[in-house]
């Protein structure tokens, strides 16, 4: 079967430059990543900052060579056949300000279209059409240096779609955008794929909701390893046999966490202090364990303010796989992957 993207035991190790001779430092950005993306799929790569998402994308768009393993895009090897891959792909990165400030939106887009061999007439037609779709048509002759961050990002997104790529790589495309702009972008991405069922999109994000909303399948990646890969529904279904509860309680002393850990049947829990109260997220083996938790809280004069049973989310899946929330992982990441910065 032909896959749009296929990686086989892909690894990438960075050597940290500038380190002392006696202590060479290496950073393992990707480790043994094997993925298969079908044509027509919107595949998501979900993970915290420093997980290796951008490194994987850079390898697939032929900007970075893997240390070991292979990667194929539309059947072409990213190392040996990069020249065959480049005409059929494109990439949009979030949080960047590429382009030339002194050129207008139209001129910037036209210039990049020329690099892909589009005729000026065709390029201008597509530019007008796509800018209309993203709501930037009235700024077509505005210098890109005069655009806000969100509008500039929309311009970059149009640049990615302009060449009608077979495979499109979106690296956190909504990073830095406000809620409305993010929603517009997500809607546009989904619409484009629905209109072009033969195209493929690989989307990286650390926003769970974005992955749940857009992706046909999601791979959860952390510290260079793929932890799980399936549809969002299937991933959440894995947790459905467990019970997930959300409790808001009065302040809990630090040592109390040890009491909770001792209760049998608690698979995972997260205690997050808030202002005047605490949030307790529980993944239990079964609903019956909740009674033991409530008893323990009550005996220790901890007041339960709110109690809810939740449907599992991808965040819960991540916590289940990694043992920490994505926020905690990002907070704990020292010496992030250089490509993620």
């Amino acid at each position: 079967m032909n896959f749009a993207i296929q990686t086989n035991h892909l690894s990438r190790i960075y050597k940290i430059r500038g380190s002392k001779k006696n202590s060479p430092r290496e950073l393992v950005a990707l480790q043994d990543v094997s993925l298969e993306v079908h044509p027509g799929e919107l595949f998501g790569l979900l993970g915290p900052n420093g997980a290796g998402k951008t490194t994987l994308i850079k390898i697939l768009i032929t900007l970075l060579a893997p240390t070991s393993g292979t990667a194929l895009v539309c059947g072409y090897d990213v190392v040996k056949e990069a020249h065959k891959i480049r005409p059929i792909i494109n990439m949009v990165s979030g949080g960047e300000s590429s382009g030339y400030g002194l050129l207008t939106v139209r001129e910037n887009l036209w210039m990049f279209a020329q690099f892909y061999g589009l005729s000026s007439k065709e390029a201008n037609r597509r530019i007008a059409q796509l800018l209309e779709v993203v709501g930037l048509a009235d700024r077509i002759n505005t210098k890109s240096s005069d655009l806000s961050t969100g509008l500039r990002q929309k311009m970059n997104i149009v640049r990615g779609f302009l060449t009608d790529p077979q495979v499109l790589f979106l690296d956190e495309p909504t990073l830095g955008l406000d809620v409305g702009a993010s929603r517009d972008v997500r809607r546009f991405i989904r619409q484009w794929l629905d209109d072009h069922p033969e195209r493929t999109i690989l989307l990286t994000t650390h926003y769970m909701a974005e992955a749940e909303e857009l992706c046909d399948r999601v791979a959860i990646i952390n510290q260079g390893r793929v932890l799980a890969c399936d549809t969002p529904a299937s991933l959440k279904h894995r947790l459905q046999r467990e019970a997930i509860y959300h409790l808001e309680v009065s302040q809990v002393e630090n040592h109390y966490s040890e009491h909770l850990k001792a209760i049998q049947g608690i698979r995972k829990f997260l205690l997050r202090p808030r202002d005047g109260y605490a949030v307790l997220e529980l993944i239990l083996d079964q609903d019956e364990t909740l009674a033991a938790v409530v008893n323990a809280l009550t005996e220790n004069k901890v007041r339960i303010i709110n109690l809810q049973k939740r449907e599992p989310t991808l965040e819960d899946v991540f916590v289940d796989l990694v043992g920490k929330s994505m926020e905690d992982v990002e907070r704990g990441n020292n010496g992030a992957n250089p490509s993620e910065s």
Binding site: Q114, L118, L130
Partner: peptide
């Protein structure tokens, strides 16, 4: 809906000169 047709192929010399001109433009 967006209806964007397939990218037409340009010969390598044509692409070369298009690129030269496009990059000189800024």
């Amino acid at each position: 809906a967006t209806t964007v047709p397939t990218l037409p192929k340009a010969s390598s010399w044509k692409l070369f000169f298009k690129t030269v001109f496009a990059r000189a433009y800024p």
